[in-house]
């Protein structure tokens, strides 16, 4: 099922990282698409932007940010948005995403994706912010579910339902990070499949996959390893519910060779194809009412 904006299924991409710049420029590998970390290409006229221009001339590129701070109680940073908009235009970004989180208040940026309390107040606040941001950007944005390590006692909504309500009422998209669903479900003890069941299908424009680090008492979302089997299982489940959605593999620490990272992304294709053979594509009725149907 397509998303409501008609954003295409770009296939299987990876996050563009500086350790792979040479390989990508020299070999122009056959990869479907790239996602870039927006902030790394703002305020620089140096090599990163030069590489990006060349990458964007060959591949579809999607902008993924970490400093939108959409849930913060600080004023919206329009200077940041202006630069984001210009960058999106420069490289013909297919869409723009960031996270459902806040990164700082009082003018500070902790550069972390900090958890929101899922309250009515936070919901209203974030809906208004998303609307303002989308008006300014003149396009919808997609918000990603972040990995979280704590829950606030003030929360009155499960995260999945908060995201569903937020994205419906603010009319924005969802970047469903399947690994983050798994990480948070481990850390907070919820059912990751039930979480995915609550996600409005027609708002999901992209999925993320990544490896993580299990500390025993909790999981850290380190993007430092291969995707574990349970996350692949969850990806199959998400694919069954959501249909063909642009899928991206994130690897940010201990980054191996390009082909290894790309190979990991291509595993997603196998899982998808297996699922599609099992069931007629998207004619899935698992008895769960989907939002947005």
């Amino acid at each position: 099922m397509a998303n409501r904006w008609g954003y295409p299924d770009l296939g299987f991409g990876i996050g563009l990282r500086s350790v792979h710049y040479e390989h990508v420029l020299n070999n122009k590998p056959a990869i479907d698409w790239f996602e870039i970390l927006s902030e790394n290409y703002m305020d620089t006229g140096g090599r990163p932007l030069h590489v990006l221009d060349q990458v964007a001339a060959h591949y579809p590129v999607v902008l993924h940010g970490v400093s939108l701070s959409v849930g913060s109680t600080d004023p919206i940073d329009f200077d940041y948005l202006r630069k984001l908009k210009a960058l999106a235009k420069r490289i013909n970004a297919r869409w723009i995403s960031d996270h459902l989180c806040w990164t700082g208040v009082a003018g500070h940026n902790t550069h972390d994706l900090l958890p929101m309390p899922y309250t009515n107040e936070a919901l209203r606040h974030t809906i208004e912010r998303v609307k303002t941001i989308q008006d300014f950007m003149e396009r919808p944005i997609a918000l990603e579910n972040a990995s979280t390590y704590l829950e606030f006692s003030a929360s009155t909504w499960p995260e999945s339902e908060f995201i569903a309500a937020l994205t419906e009422q603010a009319d924005c998209g969802i970047l469903l990070d399947v690994n983050n669903v798994y990480v948070s479900s481990y850390n907070h003890g919820f059912d990751p499949k039930a979480y995915i069941d609550k996600i409005p299908r027609d708002r999901v424009v992209q999925m993320h996959l990544a490896g993580h680090t299990n500390k025993g008492t909790h999981i850290l979302d380190t993007h430092s390893d291969y995707v574990i089997d349970s996350v692949w299982e969850l990806y199959r489940y998400a694919h069954r519910r959501l249909g063909g959605v642009s899928t991206l593999l994130e690897w940010d620490a201990n980054i191996p060779d390009f082909d290894v990272v790309h190979g990991e992304a291509l595993k997603a294709r196998q899982f998808r194809e297996q699922e599609d053979l099992k069931l007629p594509a998207h004619a899935v009725d698992d008895g769960v009412p989907a939002y947005g149907d």
Binding site: G71, S72, V105, A106, T110, F152, S153
Partner: peptide
């Protein structure tokens, strides 16, 4: 125990 001091106070505190 439920404590909801509001979004802004939670964020200032956590930061």
């Amino acid at each position: 125990m439920v404590t909801d001091p509001g979004l802004e106070r939670i964020q200032r505190w956590m930061q």
